[in-house]
Amino acid sequence: MQITSRKKVRRWFTKILWRHIVGIIVAIFSLFPLIWMISAAFDVTNQLSTQQLIPVHKGFDNFNALFSNEEKPYLVWVRNSLVVATTAALLQTLLGSAAAYSLSRHKFKGRAITLNAILIVQMFPQLLAATTLFLIVNSLGDTFPLLGLGHQLPLILIFTGAALGVNTWMLKGFFDTIPSDIDEAAKIDGASHAVIFTKIIIPLATPVFVVIFLLSFIGILNEYLISSVILGLDGPKMTLAVGLQQFIYGSYAKNWGPFTAGALLATIPVLTLFMVLQKYLVTGLVAGSSKG
């Protein structure tokens, strides 16, 4: 009896313990920036140089400073980001799924070509054409100021233009798994293609839509290059990604506190959503990239 338990302990040491050690080291590495972000956000001394893991002087000063800074309107940036990311991600999901529905269900000439063309276009990221996107939006603005530089509408359109490349293959793959008997039956009952799409396919695919919407949303939230080119590096139209970068321009140490407070506030909702929907998002991430 005693021998087997000792054996068990030894087995635990050789087989399990070192895995925990590896796990803890990697966990510290994974959480490192997040921990310091939290710590700095609540450290009222607002000094890079004196910051401790557990702040000596705790408080909400950094958050107050963040909200009262009129030169760097954090809440305006958040609103801008939400407007751009929500609209563009919604349009991306909608247009992507409409295209995927057609490619999955309708047999037409040029279907294979369309699918391949989307795959090839996807290989060339939109951000490579940032220079010409800038020139195009600049001249669009000569006629319609709302479509010009410094406005969110052209940015939303640009991101929506990437919709087919990002989502279509993944959504088509999912629609292909929905048995077409269902829509054949509906068709016999007299349902139109619009009814089949909105009343049958969309409800069945809701979880996938949520995943694609969230991944697109996070992707747009993280986009820096095209946003900064179209909206500019100052002014009230900036997105959060471009705006927060301004905090660390020049003297980093001076703005470390408010910056981390702002970063933390923006991280919490995304992190929470991600963790709650972890199962679906992880599947989506892996499936999405395997298709292209």
């Binding site: 966990a27 959480l31 920036p33 997040l34 972000m37 890079l48 939230l221 980093y252």
Partner: peptide, 25 residues
């Protein structure tokens, strides 16, 4: 461990990169 390991994916990368920039000063 798996949940902890994937936190870098769940933090908007622009923000985490800027935080890293501060840590690396």
């Amino acid at each position: 461990y798996r949940t902890v390991f994937i936190t870098p994916l769940a933090i908007p990368s622009v923000l985490s990169i800027l935080v890293w920039a501060g840590l690396f000063q």
